[in-house]
Amino acid sequence: MEISIIAEKLFSIGNFSVTNSLFIAVIVAVALGLSAAVFSRNPKEIPRGAQNVIEAVFEGLLSFIESITNDRKQAKDFFPLVATIFLFVLFSNWSGLLPGAGTIGLNEEHAGRIIMVPFLRGPAADLNMTVALSLVSVFSVQIFGILALGVRGYVSKFLVAPWKKPYAIGTIVGLLELIGEFAKILSFSFRLFGNVFAGEVLLTVMLSLVPYLIPLPFLILEVFVSVVQAAVFSLLTIVFLKMAVTGHEEGAH
């Protein structure tokens, strides 16, 4: 049994090597985009079948965002990014739980050793995916902040002159917040990666120890953890977005 922290290479397009996690990420994205687009087309006044599900999911997400922002307009602004993160992370995680993920693959020789390269690997069990999502999230936070407060207003959150009101404390807090913005990338990506990768390791180990029944509770747990991780990632994104668009002065009063 070999569990690699690095996603394995499946095939190459030119000199770009496609890993199994990227492959699955693309498939999840295509499936999600297609189904959402198909089911959202020509919505009927009286919802039927899949439209009910889409409506429930969208309404639920929107009201969830609104419950944090307390502002309908902001909720609508944040909705596309947050909803996409939630749905993409959720379905990525669930795709990693499909039978065969991490277990079906080709045996390849690497550095003199035979290792099995699985076809399926949960996209979030690859740091490239989680770091990519974190970068998108944190970058969006900065963009929303600048759009809401202007460049000067937004920068003044981090760079506080030491001769102004809270003096040196303000300067230090501002710098800490600036460091915090970078720390967000790390915390975002490692939280998601850690949870999903740990889950996959756990499942693989359980499966190799006792193939029947015993892994089932863990599988159910992972289904749940997938939802929680998707919710946490999107929740934190909302919170950071809300913090970014709230001005310094506004927050102080």
């Binding site: 770009f16 890993t19 990227l22 994205a29 993409f88 490239n128 990519a132 998108v136």
Partner: peptide
Amino acid sequence: LLLAQVVNFLILLFIMHRFAY
């Protein structure tokens, strides 16, 4: 790979925004 993942996500975001949300 990182760039590929970012692009993948951004395309998904665009499609979801344009055709679903």
